[in-house]
Amino acid sequence: MIPAGFEYHRPGDIASAIGILQEHGDEARVIAGGHSLIPMMKLRMAEMGHLVDLQAIDELKGIQIGSDTVTLGAMVTQHELITHDGLAAAIPLIREAALQIADPQVRYMGTVGGNVANGDPGNDMPGLMQCLNATFELSGPDGNRSVAAREFYEAAYFTAREDEEILTRISIPVPGAGVGQAYEKQKRKIGDYATAAAAVMVGNGTASVAMTNLADTPIWSEGASAALADGDVNGCVAAMLDAIEPVADNRGPVEFKKHVAAVMLRRAIDRAQSRAG
């Protein structure tokens, strides 16, 4: 658990951070809260010559609540997501999910940007952002661009983000009144990744359904969402079970995970429906 040596950088703005990434290429990695990267470094499964710490960059901070859109800076911590009253009012699903991530110590440091950008299939926020139809803002040497959360994830730890880009902000449409939301997660203990987790929004004739840690990327299912929008819960669950591809690990075999996935999804749907309208 002793990491290899590295150079530490602490730029004060996004442009400087991108400059460092450009200079060192794939020798450099950005670090946000560090809760995924530092353990990997200690295990020497991640080794890089240059670590670019984003915590001094004010442009990456802050939560803005608009009437149609909520914007989260990439360096907003899970703790801030939980304690921000305006956010809890606008999109209660985010607080509900953040409370189920790790433990308070981790949530003081862990960031929403790190959680979505790392591409770890165990992380909760990617599935949540797909459910909410969020958009990730990326800054790179060629300027800024946006990628939909539903388009961002390619495989475990592989995303649409280029090596020299930084995920700077997350924009989320406010679901609006009448839309019920719920996040249901089964885990072995506090601090664990999900055995299965489901994010559900339903109401006003619309629905969106995403699940976590049941494939090498988060799974948002158009078919499951459409079925639920039509009020067809069984169809929704069936479509989602078709879409997920869980693998056996210490949490259990595939058969178990599929069963639990269905249970979590049904519970999330129940709760979301009870909050709708």
């Binding site: 433990d103 203990k189 506090i190």
Partner: peptide, 27 residues
């Protein structure tokens, strides 16, 4: 939940506290 589990190659499957169950105050 707590166990030292091996796969058939003799690899330890539960070598970290993610997989080796140590209850927190919550559990």
């Amino acid at each position: 939940g707590q166990e030292i589990a091996y796969d058939e190659m003799g690899n330890v499957k539960t070598g970290t506290l993610m997989d080796f169950f140590l209850p927190t105050a919550w559990e």
